[in-house]
C-alpha cells in the first residue's frame, strides 16, 4: 500500500483505487487534544483541495481538505465517540474518510513519506 502526504498535513494510503485519509502525527501535535471530528456523508463527492472534514480541539477548528478528488465511500464513525483516537493513533485507527479516487493521476502531485518528513523539518 502506497502512502502519500500533503503540505496541509493530511496523509493518505492507497489500496487499489480507494484512499484512506487522515491527519498526520505532526498535525495532531500542533492541534492539541482533539475533542470533535465532523465527517462528511458517505456518497459525498469531494474535489481535491475542497473541505472533507473538520477537526476540532478546544481552541481551534480546522478544515481537513480532500487530498484527492473522488467519492466518500466510508467514514470513521468511531471518532464521534472517541475523538481522542486522532491524538493516540493519527495515522492508523484515527483515520477520517475513505475516498474512491476519480483521478489517480492526482497522486503524482503528493509527497512520499521521506519528502513529508523533510518538509516538516523545515517548519
Amino acid at each position: 500500500m502506497a502512502k502519500f502526504f500533503t503540505k496541509d498535513h493530511e496523509w493518505l494510503s492507497v489500496d487499489g483505487n480507494v484512499a484512506t485519509v487522515g491527519i498526520t502525527d505532526y498535525a495532531q501535535q500542533q492541534l492539541g487534544d482533539v475533542v470533535f471530528v465532523e465527517l462528511p456523508e458517505v456518497g459525498k463527492a469531494v474535489t481535491k483541495g475542497g473541505e472533507a472534514a473538520v477537526v476540532e480541539s478546544v481552541k481551534a477548528a480546522s478544515e481537513v481538505y480532500a487530498p484527492v478528488s473522488g467519492t466518500v465511500t466510508d467514514v470513521n464513525a468511531a471518532l464521534a465517540e472517541n475523538p481522542a483516537t486522532v491524538n493516540e493513533a493519527p495515522e492508523t485507527e484515527g483515520w477520517f474518510v475513505r475516498i474512491e479516487l476519480s483521478d489517480e493521476g492526482e497522486l503524482a502531485e503528493l509527497m512520499d513519506e521521506a519528502a513529508y518528513r523533510a518538509y516538516v523539518d523545515t517548519l
Binding site: H9, I23, A27, D33, S57, V58, K59, A60, S62, E63
Partner: peptide, 12 residues
C-alpha cells in the same frame, strides 16, 4: 488542513 491556532494543552 488549516491550522489557525497554536496547539496548547487544554487538559491540565
Amino acid at each position: 488542513m488549516t491550522m489557525n491556532r497554536e496547539g496548547r494543552p487544554t487538559a491540565p
